[in-house]
Structure formats: structure tokens, C-alpha cells
Design a protein around this nucleic acid. Structure first.
Lengths: 348, 348
DNA sequence: CTGAAAGCGCTTACAG
DNA sequence: CTGAAAGCGCTTACAG
């Protein structure tokens, strides 16, 4: 055996072996061709059950790990799924991502997480950069994007699932709920509690915040109580501090307001803390409602009434849907409405 | 031109072109060989400035995007950096990640984000799976990992930067601060305020929480005030609700406690809310301190005294350090201490 | 149901 | 400073 060494150098020098256990090694060990080994491992078409077992055993024994790069190059499809969310600082999207990962990872897919900061230009750059990695699929938040971003997605022909919103469009896959209906439901709840001067406070002003506003408007108009001066829209990033600031400013300007519907729980928590600071009674003087049921909302004084949004369910369902699309399944439902839940606590 | 079609099919049928603009196209357009084009684009070794410009122009003109899979396969090094954090539900790590991404993305690297849930077995699985992608580098949180996780990292020979903690070990790269010293500083602050019965409340009990505990112990022992029954350690996940629960339980058991040092701000916020609910005066009856300066801490009643941890700086610095290591730079500083800041507010 | 050949798009290792 | 050849580790497209 040691006799080989002196003769081989020239050949050896040419090689660039990475020391990796390769599919060829597995095939040799199993006594089949590399193609068969490849097919057996991927459970592709018919390969005799006996062979599949033999190949799997060989792979196991050698500690074979398929090379994603080689696979991607040969098949022009990687094991990556690009997942784009607006923010990681909103717990909502973290919960969504965790659920997505919990479905995708066991299925052999890696998530490439992109944070768009609610900026369509940033999203487009991310899309462009991630597309170069030939992802196997896409998960995108909502439907708001730039023209060319849209084209990138459409032109790629890649399976794509949109999350958080729903859409009747048949050419689009989505998992979410009607933000507008949820906004309507919360406003109705406040009206049913006897509130008349109900304000809506929105920040960030992304599409979903505006859809909730639509629901609020509809409920207020139906009740004949709509007053445009009670719509407070601030483009700044949603936060506890901003909620406190807007709560104080709104009540200074409109002392007769008897309920505030904040578009997100962090704002509402800030509002509740401001009320404590200012000695304003909640809900006696003013009722406070939020959206999303974020951490801490149930601990506030008083506990915050809000809309619980099933983001974990959305993430898991979207990932499963994407898996089905990537498998090439036909008649996958396009539009999945997972609903929402009104959670009434002490603040209203 | 249309005359070609009838003759070519057999050859065409063999091809599997993806329609992508390839390096060969760029090389042809620039009138150089693919190798030269490759080197020019990567700014590898000497390629005439004139040629570099010509190649770049050609690439630009054709809209060339390098194929990461092909690059990874040929060089056995991808453009991925694996970044492992314990949790995304702690804002701390989100801030860290954002900073890492903001440095890595412009440099052409993608982050593969892995969430370990403070579980060394989960971390090991992630490591194993990410290693298959031949990442160009690693960013890991802390030093606590399984034997085989350790071996995976060490054996790979990959550049690796550890974040959040520091270590004098010369073979290890890290960016962080001394958690123990920070814990010591906060405890001293409470003692200087005249507090004598200072409790430490920790949850999760990961390495850093225990290091802060060490600092607390040291300060208490030096002051001759250490009392082991005032160390409250709960393995459950840190949260606002848990902080409220532990605050109430601790004061019920030890009514003489005059200060509580929570290992994280979410716990402390919960403690503050519980105090409000129970009518316990903060800081008069009991002072409350937290750690990390998370969102909302400055909005609490009273505002929370805490330790501001420069996680954005840590993330950015770690990413730059990794970039230097991946470039093969020598004498990169091993151990970067970015410090921390005691933020004294109304709660102490 | 299985396999020999070619190719995916790059870079490494040698030469010149 | 530039290039022709080979190879990275897989899978696709054809055959049988």
C-alpha cells in the first residue's frame, strides 16, 4: 500500500480534494453509481428499496453530508429560502420567523433572513442579492413593494408566499388575516362599550397600519361618529416612548377623547404608562386598546385590551405552503385566512 | 440567423444553460480570459489597472452577478457567515444582529442566522448543518458550548469571533465586556445608595447571568453583606411576567429586602409593574435595577436604573474583526473590551 | 429500475 | 502580469 506514494505525486498535486466525504465515496461503498446514490438519497423516482437502504447505510457509515453548493450549482436551485420581514425589533416578526424556521429547517432548508426596515428600496436590494443565491423559495411580508422588486419576484418564477395579509388575487399565495376587519372589530368593541370620541393612533404607516385605519373609519362612519381630526398618523417608528408622547399630545389637543385605539401594542403600552404618569384614569376617563398582543400587555396597569394575531400559526402555515409549492404540488390553496382574536382586558 | 436553428438542436439539447450572464460572457465582452476576469472582479493580485476597469465595465454592462454556488464549490468557501444567537426574542440580540448585518452585507457576505434557544444541543445541530454550507466565518455568542460543538468549530479552522463576553485566552477572538465587572458595578451602586439587603434575581441562568451574579457576590462579600438566601435563581425564560412573579414572591419571603438587582431589564420592568400593582414604593421601600437598557426601561414608573450594554457596537466590531480574519490579516487584536455604562434613573 | 457522459459557473495550481 | 487545463461535488438529460 505504501508502494503507491512514490509514483502518485504528479497526479496528487493536481487534485484539490477538500477531504470531504463525497457522493462518489458513498456510491463506491454501496456498490452503485453516483447517480443512483444521488437518487436514493433524494428519494428521487424509483430506486429499488433494497438499494435505497444500502446507499443510506453507506452514507450514514461514512458520515456523508451533501454539499449544498454543488447541489445548487448542478440543479440551479439552492436549499435556501429567502424570508423578508420589515423589522426584527417588533416581536411579531420574530415569532413569525421562529415558526418559519421550525418548519423549514427539519425539511432541509435554510432561511436567509432579510430586514427591509419598511423600505421598498432596501427590500429590492435584498431581493436582488438573495436572488443571486438561487433560493428555492421566497416568503415576503405583505404586498407592498417596488415595481422592479415585483418584477424580480414575478420574473424569477420562484414559489413565493406572502404573509400577514390576505388577498383575493388567485395568482398569489398568502397566509394572514384581514387587518381591516380586525381594525373594524376593535373599534366596534370600543363603541359597544359606550365610547363616542374614539381616536386612532398610527405610527410607521405601513400598509397594515393603514388597513386597520380603514376598519376604524368604517366602524366610526357607520356609527355616525367619524371625525377625521381624531386620526393621528405619525410616520415615525412605533415604540413605547412614541406611544407615551402621542397619548399626551392627543389628550392635550382633544380632552374629550374617551378611547384611543393604538395600531400596535408598544404604542398602547407607552400610552398606558403616560396615563399613569399624568394621573389619567384608564379606562374611566379614556379607554386604551392596542394591536398584536405583545409581551407585557397583560402585565400593564390596567392590562391592555388588544387583538391577538396568530403570527406563529401564520409562519408555520406559510412555510408548509411554500414546502408544498417547492415540491411542485398542484392545487395548493392560495389564500389562507387564519383569523385573529379580540382579547378584552381591563383597559377598555 | 434563423438558419442556425434547424442545425443546432442536438447540441442545444445537451446544454442546461440557466440563462444567467456568466463570467465567460464578461470575459468575452472584455476581451480577456475568464481567469483574468475572475481575478479582476475579485481584485485578486496584480491585474493591470486598465484591464480591471475594462472587465468591470463589461460586468456592469451585462448586469453580471457572480454565482455564489459556483464560487463556493470552486473555492470551497462560501459567502455565508453563520451567526448564532441564543434568542431573537431578546432585543439585545436583535440589535447585535442588525449591526452585524450592516457590516457584513456591504462586504458581500450573507448571514445565516441560527437561534440556539440557549441549548447546546440545538447549537450543535445548527453548527453541523451550517458547516455543510462551508461558511466563510462564524460569529458565536459566548463560550458555552458542547464538547463536539467546540470540536466542530476548532476542527474547521474557520475564522470565528465570539461576542458578548471577553476572554484572556490568546487563541480565541472575542468582542464584549466583563459581565462580572458590570454586575459588580451595579451592586456597588446600590450599596452606595445606602442599600443593605440587596437581592439578585436571575432567570434563564446562562453563563452571562451567572457572571453578573459573580460580580454581585463579590460586591456583597466585600461589603460584608452577602446572604445566599437573597440570590434568587430561576431557570425559566426571562420575561416581564416572570419578573413580576419573582418580585412579589421575593418580597413576600424577605420583606426586609431594600433593593433588587434583576439580571435583565424585562424582569425588572415586570418587577416595577408588580410594585405599582402592590402599592410598593420604588425606590423608597425597595430600589430596582435591571441590565441591558431595553426598550421601555426609560418609560417606566419610575424610570429604571440599568446597565447599558453596547450591543450594536459589539456586533459591528465583531463583524469587522471577522472580515479582517477572513481576509487572512495577521495580528488582529484578540480580545476587545467595549465596556458598558451604568445608567442611573429614578428606580434606585 | 440503473448508468456513462456532460455540464452547472466558478477558482486553484501550474506555467509562461 | 496573463492564460489553458483541470477540478470542486453534485444533477440533468439521454439511453438502455
Amino acid at each position: 500500500m505504501s508502494a503507491d506514494s512514490p509514483v502518485e505525486p504528479p497526479a496528487e498535486r493536481r487534485r484539490r480534494s477538500t477531504g470531504r466525504v463525497t457522493l462518489a465515496d458513498v456510491a463506491k461503498a454501496a456498490g452503485v453509481s453516483p447517480i443512483t446514490a444521488s437518487r436514493a438519497l433524494r428519494r428521487d423516482r424509483g430506486v429499488g428499496e433494497a438499494l435505497v437502504e444500502k446507499v443510506k447505510a453507506a452514507a450514514e457509515g461514512l458520515g456523508y453530508v451533501p454539499d449544498p453548493a454543488a447541489r445548487a450549482l448542478a440543479s440551479s436551485r439552492s436549499s435556501h429560502v429567502a424570508v423578508l420581514v420589515p423589522l426584527l425589533t417588533n416581536r411579531l416578526f420574530v415569532d413569525l420567523l421562529e415558526a418559519v424556521q421550525s418548519v423549514l429547517l427539519p425539511a432541509g432548508y435554510q432561511s436567509l433572513i432579510g430586514v427591509t426596515h419598511y423600505d421598498v428600496r432596501e427590500e429590492e436590494l435584498l431581493l436582488r442579492s438573495y436572488m443571486a443565491h438561487r433560493p428555492a423559495g421566497l416568503i415576503l411580508t405583505g404586498f407592498e413593494r417596488s415595481e422592479s422588486g415585483q418584477r424580480l419576484v414575478g420574473g424569477s418564477g420562484l414559489p413565493c408566499v406572502h404573509v400577514m395579509e390576505i388577498s383575493p388575487a388567485p395568482e398569489v399565495y398568502c397566509v394572514g388575516f384581514s387587518q381591516q376587519t380586525a381594525g373594524l372589530a376593535m373599534t366596534r368593541h370600543l363603541l359597544e362599550r359606550g365610547r363616542r370620541r374614539v381616536a386612532y393612533v398610527g405610527a410607521q404607516l405601513d400598509a397594515r397600519v393603514m388597513q386597520r385605519l380603514e376598519g376604524y373609519r368604517e366602524a366610526m362612519q357607520v356609527a355616525g361618529l367619524h371625525d377625521a381630526s381624531l386620526e393621528w398618523l405619525d410616520p415615525r417608528r412605533s415604540s413605547i416612548a412614541l406611544g407615551a408622547e402621542l397619548f399626551e399630545a392627543l389628550l392635550a389637543r382633544h380632552p374629550d377623547v374617551d378611547a384611543i385605539f393604538f395600531c400596535n401594542d408598544d404604542l398602547a403600552q407607552g400610552g398606558l404608562l403616560a396615563a399613569l404618569r399624568l394621573g389619567i384614569q384608564v379606562p374611566e376617563q379614556v379607554a386604551v386598546a392596542g394591536f398584536n398582543d405583545l409581551e407585557g400587555s397583560d402585565q400593564m396597569l390596567p392590562p391592555l385590551t388588544t387583538v391577538r394575531t396568530p403570527r406563529a400559526q401564520i409562519g408555520a402555515h406559510a412555510a408548509s405552503m411554500l414546502l408544498a409549492l417547492m415540491r411542485g404540488e398542484r392545487d395548493v390553496p392560495h389564500n389562507v385566512d387564519v383569523g385573529y382574536e379580540l382579547v378584552v382586558r381591563g383597559s377598555t
